[in-house]
Structure formats: structure tokens, C-alpha cells
């Protein structure tokens, strides 16, 4: 049985790299990514699981990193926006479709869209896209731009 008390060293696999980190068992994955690894792409928009700005992928599925303990992430593959590479179809599509304004929600949306692409390699029906993207909030755009980006992402793949 795993039992952690007080500061503990855990191994986290983030963007393909293995990191040894000292964390408290109550530390949130989001805070550890940002404060210890400097991966500030995941954003603390609400820290309550409501806005989706901190979304990352865990074993290919989206999770809100504010609702995961860092100790729970051991043994899982984590992917953040910094791990997308810089020219992934989803990133190109978001730029071309003008799918952001202030950009704060963008890493979260990118990761949900990338997760969608992983789990649904061909463009699923509109309601599936909506279901996935309803996990995230954007205050700036009209959302139409983000829908367009999803379509373009599938065309580029």
C-alpha cells in the first residue's frame, strides 16, 4: 500500500520527461506543474473544476489539473500545452480560426481539443464536440471561432 505523509518524493512523467519532485500529499497537480516545473500553460482560472483553464491530458484523457492531487498522477502520462510541440494541427487551427482573444483559456481548450482528437480520430458528431468542449469556459470569443478551429484541426490531421 502506498502511504505518503509529509513531503514526499514522487515521479511524474510530464511531456515525456520524468521528474522527481518533492510534494505534499495535499498539493494539487496544477500547482506542482506551475510552481515546481514552471509549466504555466495550465491556468488557475477557478481552482474549482468549473472553468477548464487548467486542463491537461492524463493518459490521453482530459483532466482538470486543479482537481487532481500530484501524488495521484504518479504512474500516468501527463501532457500539457507545452508538450504539444508548437506546430501541432490543433495549434495551427486555433491560430488560423482566430479562436482566442486574451488567450488565458486557450491552453485548456487546446488540450481538450487534442484529447478529442486522440479519442476520436475522425471528426465526431457535433454533439460529441460540444460535450467535450462544454467543460471549458471562454469569456472573450463567441465560441464559433473555437468550433471552427475544431473542424480545421480535423482537416489538418
Amino acid at each position: 500500500m502506498v502511504r505518503y505523509e509529509g513531503k514526499t518524493v514522487v515521479n511524474l512523467e510530464v511531456n515525456g520527461e520524468l521528474h522527481q519532485l518533492a510534494v505534499r500529499p495535499s498539493d494539487l497537480l496544477l500547482d506542482v506543474l506551475r510552481e515546481q516545473l514552471g509549466l504555466t500553460g495550465a491556468k488557475p482560472g477557478c481552482k474549482n473544476g468549473d472553468c477548464g483553464a487548467c486542463t491537461i491530458l492524463m493518459d490521453g484523457w482530459p483532466v482538470k489539473s486543479c482537481l487532481v492531487l500530484a501524488v495521484e498522477a504518479e504512474g500516468h502520462r501527463l501532457l500539457t500545452v507545452e508538450g504539444l510541440g508548437g506546430n501541432a494541427p490543433v495549434q495551427q487551427a486555433f491560430v488560423e480560426a482566430n479562436a482566442f482573444q486574451c488567450g488565458y483559456c486557450t491552453p485548456g481548450f487546446l488540450m481538450v481539443c487534442y484529447g478529442l482528437l486522440m479519442q476520436h480520430p475522425t471528426l465526431p458528431e457535433e454533439y460529441v464536440v460540444e460535450e467535450w468542449l462544454q467543460s471549458n469556459l471562454c469569456r472573450c470569443t463567441s465560441y464559433r471561432e473555437i468550433r471552427k478551429a475544431v473542424k480545421q484541426m480535423y482537416q489538418k490531421k
Binding site: 509549466l39 504555466t40 500553460g41 495550465a42 500539457t80 500545452v81 507545452e82 504539444l84 508548437g86 495549434q91 486555433f94 491560430v95 482566442f100 488567450g103 486557450t106 491552453p107 487546446l110
Partner: peptide, 9 residues
């Protein structure tokens, strides 16, 4: 102008 900064974190 800042598009690529915003899609890469």
C-alpha cells in the same frame, strides 16, 4: 501578433 505565444503556453 501574439497568436503563437498564446497557443504554445
Amino acid at each position: 501578433k501574439e497568436a503563437w505565444d498564446k497557443v504554445t503556453g
